[in-house]
């Protein structure tokens, strides 16, 4: 292969007149050497970026997977976006249901396929998997634009990517961004280590250490009316929606069954005002899911419509009080689904 490539290059150069050949070869040699140097620099900067990013929000993925491997049964695995990461109080769930919660959620931008694929390897008999997808995802938005960010912090998570070709295409389409971020990471690390840079409030909040052992975000969150849209309108559902998501969930349910685990669906918590605005759409969606989904739906959308004051900075992120309240509702739904008994008391 190498010989063939070299042969091709030589033939190209041989198209040049004799006098130019030496000059061109010399130029190309220097250019190739310089490019190789830049590839090495890029690799080094990418490693530095991974070191830096392992401490950020996505870095929590490493801890979540460790807990997924180590947590004792009976386990409740929570899958969802940031609305679950910032919307669940696992202590409350544990107390009421008796399950050992593992909150695997990070961001809806990872896409349902990746989020579901992440836990498949570690499913055990008796696991309860609670899937809480955002309304956008249930309505068909399965974008996974955040995967590259997560892979920088946790390169090992690449094994959960179902389509490496798609990932490669995504990597190359974001290559310019990677070229931009790699030197920034090194620079920030350098000036940070010299004490010349203080982390931004966002960086202080969105980092790995903001999670508790269950995987819930625990930093203090207050209701910010200027950030949370009180009446958020969801995109309309077209006729073919949400076929792809339903197929994904049904396939996931089959895998869970084959491992002796059970998957159920719960709805995302949203402000009651937003629910009122979208209730026709949401009810249509609920009907469709009830008809087509082979997974149990353990609550109703209206039950997860909470007071507006429980939401911190988006219509999915809850304050700590909101997270506790939502967890109580979810725990009760699980108990009802279980027939009224908590797991620790024997089901």
């Amino acid at each position: 292969m190498e010989q063939r490539t070299r042969g091709l290059l030589t033939r190209r150069i041989e198209l040049l007149p004799d006098g130019d050949q030496r000059q061109m070869k010399r130029f190309l040699r220097a250019l190739m050497a310089f490019l190789i140097l830049q590839v090495l620099v890029f690799s080094a900067l990418t490693v530095i970026q991974t070191l830096r990013d392992s401490g950020n929000y996505w870095g929590a993925s490493i801890d979540k997977h460790r807990r997924l491997e180590e947590a004792p049964s009976p386990r409740m695995i929570l899958i969802g976006g940031s609305g679950v990461a910032l919307g669940i109080d696992s202590e409350v769930l544990k107390q009421i249901t008796g399950y050992n919660p593992i909150n695997m959620s990070l961001a809806a931008g990872l896409g349902p396929e990746f989020m579901l694929g992440e836990v498949v390897e570690d499913l055990r008999e008796g696991d309860l998997v609670v899937v809480v997808l955002s309304y956008e995802a249930l309505l068909g938005n399965t974008a996974n634009r955040c995967i590259l960010g997560l892979l920088h912090s946790n390169p090992g998570a690449i094994r959960y990517v179902s389509d490496p070709l798609k990932l490669s295409a995504m990597y190359f389409s974001h290559f310019g961004n990677q070229l931009r971020n790699a030197p920034r990471a090194a620079w920030e690390l350098l000036i940070g280590s010299l004490g010349l840079r203080t982390p931004t409030p966002g960086e202080l909040r969105w980092r790995r250490s903001s999670f508790n052992i269950y995987g819930d975000v625990i930093y203090e969150r207050v209701h910010s009316p200027d950030l949370v849209e009180q009446y958020y309108r969801f995109p309309e559902m077209s006729d073919e929606y949400p076929g792809n998501v339903i197929d994904l969930l049904n396939d996931f349910q089959s895998i869970c069954r084959s491992r002796g685990a059970t998957a159920v669906l719960s709805y995302a918590a949203i402000p009651d005002s937003t629910y009122s605005l979208n209730h026709i759409l949401i009810e249509r969606l609920h009907m469709k899911l009830e008809n087509e989904l082979r997974m149990d739906i353990i609550d109703l959308p209206a039950r997860m419509a909470l007071p507006y004051e429980f939401f911190s900075d988006t219509h999915y992120h809850l304050t700590r009080e909101g997270a506790a309240e939502r967890s109580r509702i979810l725990a009760k739904s699980i108990l009802v689904w279980h027939g009224g008994r908590s797991v620790s008391r024997g089901s």
Binding site: L37, V41, G176, N177, L179, R180, P183, R184
Partner: peptide
């Protein structure tokens, strides 16, 4: 010389616009 070129080049990448 190449160290300087490399610094200049990565300074360009550093300042590339957001995607």
């Amino acid at each position: 010389r190449w160290a300087v070129y490399t610094l200049v080049l990565w300074s360009v990448f550093y300042h590339l616009p957001q995607p």
